[in-house]
């Protein structure tokens, strides 16, 4: 394999025919920077058709090329057709990198086509750096429970395949550039699709579980007592915000997964983020560090969370919470 035969960075545009998944647009914005650094084109791979307004939004991120794919087999998401599609496209166009949003679908098919090509695949990088010396992308991510940062590279093989969690990168479109369209047809025989959707029951919509856009978040950590939860809910409500938690709180079965903030959970950027009894592991911090103002309450003065906060209070979480409630009720 000669790395120099490979050019351009791809982003898979996941959509439902009406709207593009936010993560795909976030990726276009981030990869725009990496592609510029590398002097390569940013290519958006769109399967099926998008409404004009969504195509417009996509172009605003500065894509140079839209690779528009049509064909059989893509009517509903299935790993078989998508893994085949990216194998075929990568072999034909030889991109240096393929980025896929870390949705359940993306995490299903990306490692699969990477295996078929074969090439290296990484997931959940929180930072991307293009190294001019090696021309490789450095995928940087927290490792070992956040105690270390690991740099992952694919130094020999191409393309470099990466899935990235929603919310990891910001949606900051830098504006339209001249954009060309390539039309491709890749048919996948429907008879070869091995999975079928029989039914789908949407979760009851519960606004309190939708914390990604909250202005204020009260986050409880592993130290939270189950009996104390109502206090934190009340505090969140009085501040006009929502309750969130760290992963161990979910692991203990205390709060649902949708409230987990961090690398494996939701990425949040509230104006105010208040944590109680959260130690400050990088896995959690990557999910909240872009908050406007970070307040931390922890009984351990050496807790790592104090290194990330704007304001810190050393003390018992319940005591501080109760005092805040008293203050707010005044």
């Amino acid at each position: 394999m000669n790395k120099n035969d490979y050019r351009d960075m791809w982003v898979f545009i996941e959509h439902d025919g009406e709207t593009i998944q936010p993560v795909s647009l976030e990726l276009c914005c981030e990869i725009r920077k990496i592609a510029d650094a590398a002097g390569e084109k940013l290519v958006a791979v769109v399967v099926g058709t998008l409404p004009e307004s969504e195509t417009e939004k996509l172009m605003e991120t500065g894509v140079d090329v839209i690779l528009r794919v049509s064909g059989t087999g893509y009517g509903y998401f299935n790993v078989d057709a998508y893994a085949n599609l990216f194998t075929v496209l990568c072999r034909k166009y030889l991109p240096t990198a393929v980025f896929v949003g870390g949705t359940i679908n993306g995490r299903d098919f990306a490692p699969r086509f990477a295996c078929r090509l074969p090439t290296g695949c990484t997931s959940d990088a929180t930072e991307l750096v293009w190294d001019p010396k090696t021309t490789d992308i450095e995928f940087i991510e927290p490792a070992v429970g956040g105690k270390m940062m690991a740099v992952i590279t694919v130094p020999v093989m191409r393309p470099q395949v990466g899935t990235i969690r929603p919310g990891t990168f910001k949606y900051v479109p830098t504006g339209k550039r001249p954009c060309s369209v390539i039309e491709e047809t890749v048919d996948f025989p429907e008879a070869e699709i091995r999975t079928r959707v029989l039914d789908f029951k949407a979760d009851d919509f519960d606004e309190s579980l939708n914390i990604a856009d909250a202005d204020v978040i009260v986050c409880v950590g592993n130290a939270v007592k189950v009996d104390s939860l109502p206090k934190y809910r009340e505090l969140a409500a009085l501040l006009g915000g929502k309750l969130g938690c760290t992963r161990p709180v979910f692991d203990r079965g205390v709060l649902p997964f949708k409230l987990v903030i961090g690398q494996s959970g939701v990425v949040v950027k509230p104006k105010l983020y208040l944590s109680f009894g959260v130690s400050g592991a990088v896995n959690h911090v990557t999910g909240m560090q872009d908050s406007g103002c970070i307040v931390a309450v922890n009984k351990d003065p050496d807790a790592a969370i104090f290194k990330y906060c704007d304001y810190g209070i050393v003390g018992d979480m319940d005591e501080v919470c109760e005092q805040m409630l008293r203050h707010l009720r005044r």
Binding site: G146, K307, Y308, C309, D310, I313
Partner: peptide, 22 residues
């Protein structure tokens, strides 16, 4: 047989402590 490599690891960069209220 492994195309992905881990060329280096480093401790997470943490900033200065925030303003401690005491």
């Amino acid at each position: 047989g492994s195309p992905t490599k881990v060329p280096r690891t480093y401790p997470p960069v943490v900033g200065e402590s925030g303003h401690m209220i005491d």
